[in-house]
Design a protein around this nucleic acid. Structure first.
Lengths: 114, 114
DNA sequence: CCGCATCCGATTGGATACTG
DNA sequence: CAGTATCCAATCGGATGCGG
């Protein structure tokens, strides 16, 4: 955050903060990212780790992340078909942010427990 | 992020990550927080800094932040009435997260420019 | 100055059923 | 296994107008 405090007129897609928010935005997204942080996963493996997440939303999240260049899809032939999802180099950049989200949440809970 | 990778079944409100996301969630919220980071602001000062933000949404954001204990409201008597909003101690805890959001966004833009 | 009330269109996420 | 296709309820954010 340089010295442009208080100057932004509206949320712009090119603002770094907005870019980062877009990456982690949407329900379940941080959980999907967390699972991918520990290594490549197939569609079903991800779905199994998040049992109450519908296939539609998982598809949407993965498509969004792929479009942002954060996740790469790899179709593996054979039958049954398999698809492997893994974080790209760009996706790895999100790790410190997820850690900071966790850290901040813990600090908030310590101050103001529920 | 301890070793509970891949275990969460659904987004739970008590998860630290969800707590942090709730704090910064919603359009404009990070911009409102950024303006408050540099000191107390009145309703109109905040609105002037974010000209395309409707009063309704600003009210909603401030009410939400207040309910989470991140922002404190102080009514100043006199006429016209004045209300001062400032970050609480808990709200100050969000500063490193905002910095990290900015940092991460910059890094993403460097890898994958728009 | 500081909001609240109301309405409304758009987006979101969940449920369900079906396909290559 | 890995999705797509619909449909639907709920939420969200923007616009406008009024009131303390």
């Amino acid at each position: 955050m340089p010295s442009d405090l208080g100057r932004t007129r509206r949320p712009e897609a090119t603002c770094p903060v907005e870019v980062a928010l877009a990456a982690i935005g949407g329900r379940w997204t941080t959980l999907v990212l967390r699972d991918l942080m520990s290594g490549p996963r197939s569609f079903t493996e991800l779905a199994d780790g998040l049992p109450t997440l519908s296939a539609k939303v998982l598809t949407e999240r993965l498509a969004g992340l792929e479009q942002q260049g954060l996740v790469a899809r790899r179709r593996l032939g054979g039958f049954p078909a398999r698809t492997e999802y893994r974080l790209t180099e760009a996706g790895q950049l999100l790790r410190p942010l997820l850690v900071e989200l966790y850290r901040t949440g813990e600090a908030l809970l310590a101050v103001n427990p529920r």
